[in-house]
Amino acid sequence: MVRKLTGEKQMWQQRFSTCKAIILVALGLLYAEASLAQTSPEGVGQKRLADRPTAEEKPVGAQFLVKAGCVACHGMDEVRIGPSYRSIAEQYTDADADTLEWLAQKIVFGGVGKWGVVPMVANPHVQIEEARESISWILKNAKEQ
């Protein structure tokens, strides 16, 4: 314990009392903690049910189009709300790099005018790289169906 000047004696005495109280409480809590750890499933060391991880593998291709919600508007062969993937693939068969990038941006930010008056909704949950991969997949696979 550090001794201070006489004028601060009272403050230090108060601190000492407080410290003593805290130590006693801590010891009491320590005892309780040990009790809980051994007897209650909710205490320290509880084992929980096996953590069953969900499928973290990144979906690709058709799986991604389902997960991202694209199938809500587009069918492989059929017109749903937007054009079919086949129509898109046929329209952009020989698309250059700029056009492919424009298509990917359209997936993320939406657009209107190419296929009618109804806008395509934005999909901010889709990363631009995912959009590029999706375009690539559609142009490669939709025509082959």
Binding site: A26, E33, A34
Partner: peptide, 21 residues
């Protein structure tokens, strides 16, 4: 049982006391 397993609570209590000082 109090002496077993390393008491995190005791360590915390000591830390608090030190901070108070």
């Amino acid at each position: 049982s109090l002496l077993k397993g390393g008491s995190k609570l005791l360590k915390n209590a000591v830390t608090v006391v030190a901070l108070l000082l």
